[in-house]
Design a protein around this nucleic acid. Sequence first.
DNA 1: CGTGTAAGGAATTCTGACACG
DNA 2: CGTGTAAGGAATTCTGACACG
Lengths: 101, 101
Amino acid sequence: MSSYKDKKVITIGIVHELTGISERKIRYYEQRELIFPDRTKNGTRKYSFSDVERLTEIADMREEGVQTYEIKKDMKNKKKYKDVREDMLRGQLNAHFRMRK
Amino acid sequence: MSSYKDKKVITIGIVHELTGISERKIRYYEQRELIFPDRTKNGTRKYSFSDVERLTEIADMREEGVQTYEIKKDMKNKKKYKDVREDMLRGQLNAHFRMRK
DNA sequence: CGTGTAAGGAATTCTGACACG
DNA sequence: CGTGTAAGGAATTCTGACACG
């Protein structure tokens, strides 16, 4: 659902420049599965602008004392609600088409 | 007039991955003033998605045999026409407001 | 748990130059 | 003119580990 925003092309040093978040933290959040960079053929991490935004969100939550474990649970919840919304939409569409038949 | 597209965050190696254009060529087109990357504090070149698109345009023109000098002239022409269009627009606006006074 | 840091190696990038055509 | 390549150095990135709290 996008183009530039989700293209993974930014190296970790520049992500750090952009966000002020230490490379150590950025790598750690990946280890905790909060963020999922691509890799170049030689193993260098590549991030998208979306990842950069996500990282600032994570950093904000961490500053509020939220643990990485909770942040990850939050992600799942958001995904679940998103799926629920999509299911509901599908249901409505199905009902709609059933009526038209 | 943009955000992600013009943000200079992509290193030369990734630009090469993205376009297939050799780093030598990319640097050379900068020397000929066809492209203008930013630099990190330590001198590493940083390109935007716009730059990447511009580079593929340049590469296409080069394949057709157009010399860098001509490509540069083309840029100036495009800029001139753009300026002319903007001047005309300004002229129309001015005329419009004069009439309303 | 979350993050800093020193360690060692591998890959990246940079510049100036020589080559060829 | 446009581009490849080897050269040497500096900066980047990676991983695994130790430290502290």
